[in-house]
Every structure is written in structure tokens, then in C-alpha cells.
Simulated assay, not measured.
Amino acid sequence: MKMIETQRSLIEVLDRDSAHFLLNYYQDNQQHLAPWEPIRGSHYLTLEYWQESLTASEQAFSNGSEFKFVALTKNRQEVIGICNFTGVTRGAFQACFLGYSISQRFEGQGLMTEILSAGIDYMFKEVGLHRIMANYMPENKRSAAVLAQLGFEKEGFARDYLMIAGQWRDHVLTAKING
């Protein structure tokens, strides 16, 4: 299954023919997302980049190594946000990392919580994972609130965890357990 429907969104693994959706999302939200993401090269804002990325995303979905979902408006005209489950590890761990973002235009409406809730449910019930880990920078209060509302528990603190906006940034480590 490549689509999840929520009350206000359609969550899909897009194919390369839908690359324009992500190109538009990242172009429109470049300044909004910049404080929370790595510095991207100029290729990041090209149609070719997103076509290649979506081809890889479809393959990863097929082999169960990554689940990169895009939440669209019900009329499939605009991207609301992104919901990525990456680094899927099987065996004794049965876990992944969660990364997400929302369009500035849709902030503050509860949509990210709605989208993540559906994605997490899919990962636990359909994919069979036991643990989903999500990390956020301490000053990102909105992200902290969303994760807390979804039942993620703080498990630690990592200094200089990721290179974000050109600087090594600390992160709060959280996880949600299936069960």
C-alpha cells in the first residue's frame, strides 16, 4: 500500500512523475525550513534531483528500507508536509528514525500531528516495527510538542548530533515504542 488517507490529507509515496510537488514544496518553504535542515546544494532545488530522489524512494519503499511519505491536500494540489521513516533496521532492533516537516502555510492547524499519527500507525501495524526514534533541537518547541502529543518519550540528549544550517547542533533524543 502506498497511500494513507487521513481526515485532511492523502499520504503517499510519490513516483518520479510527481517530482514537481516536492520541488514546489522546497522552493516555497526554503526560508521556513532552513533553520531546521542541513545546508543543501543548488541541485536540491531542481526537478531532476527530485525525480531521482523519488525513484530511489519508490525502490526503498519496495524493499522496506525507507518509507518516505508526502502528505498532500485532499485534492492532490499541494504538499502539506513530509513524513520520512528512514534507517529501518530489522533483526533484534525493529526500529527506524522519523523525520518530518510541514509547509509554513499549514503550521498551527494540527496537520503535522494528524499526518505523523497515521504514518506511525502504518509503520507499527503494516511494517511491524517496534521502535520509532525522533530527535529535535531543544529550541524547536513546536516539534517537541508534536512528539509529546504523539507519545514519544525523551530518552537522552546528544551534543553536536547533526550538522544543521551549517552548525553542529544538539538534539533531544526521543522514541515511541509499539505496544
Rank of each mutant, 00 (worst) to 15 (best):
K74H: 10
V79F: 02
T73R: 12
Y49R: 05
E52Q: 14
Q77P: 04
L33Y: 00
E78P: 06
T73P: 12
Y44T: 01
L33H: 09
L98H: 10
S42D: 15
A56C: 07
F106W: 13
E48H: 08
F85D: 05
H32L: 05
W36E: 04
G99P: 02
F106D: 06
A34K: 13
F69I: 10
P35C: 12
V70Q: 10
L33E: 08
A34D: 09
F93Y: 15
L111D: 10
F69G: 10
F61M: 01
L54W: 08
S101I: 04
F85P: 02
Q51R: 14
G87Q: 02
G87W: 01
W50Q: 04
N63F: 01
M112Q: 12
I80T: 09
S101V: 03
T89R: 12
H43M: 06
F67H: 13
T46E: 06
L98Y: 04
F93E: 09
G108R: 05
A71E: 08
F97T: 10
L111M: 11
T113E: 13
E78M: 08
E58G: 07
E52S: 12
F67I: 02
M112V: 08
A56F: 09
E107C: 15
N75M: 09
T73C: 08
R40G: 00
N75Q: 14
V88E: 00
Q51A: 08
F93R: 13
L111V: 10
I39N: 13
S42I: 06
F93V: 11
E37W: 04
F61H: 03
T55H: 11
I115K: 11
F85A: 01
I82K: 05
T55L: 15
H32R: 11
T73W: 11
W50N: 06
P38D: 06
A71R: 09
I82V: 12
V88S: 00
S42P: 11
G64D: 00
I102T: 15
A34R: 14
L45Y: 15
L72I: 08
A56D: 12
N84G: 00
G41F: 05
G87C: 02
I82E: 01
N63K: 00
I102V: 15
G87H: 05
G99D: 07
K68W: 10
L54R: 05
T46P: 02
T89K: 12
L47V: 07
Q77E: 15
Q94H: 13
G81E: 09
A92S: 14
T89S: 14
V88N: 00
Q94G: 02
H32Q: 12
N84L: 05
P38V: 06
I80F: 06
S65C: 09
E107Q: 13
S62E: 11
A56P: 00
E66T: 01
H43V: 08
P38R: 03
L47K: 10
L111G: 10
H43D: 15
F93A: 12
G41T: 14
C83A: 15
G64C: 03
R90W: 13
C83Y: 04
S101Y: 03
F97W: 12
I115P: 11
M112E: 08
G87K: 01
A71G: 08
N75I: 08
A95F: 06
S53G: 12
V88C: 00
I102A: 07
W50H: 10
E48C: 01
M112L: 14
G91K: 11
A56V: 04
F67D: 05
E114V: 13
Q77V: 07
G41N: 14
S103F: 04
E107I: 11
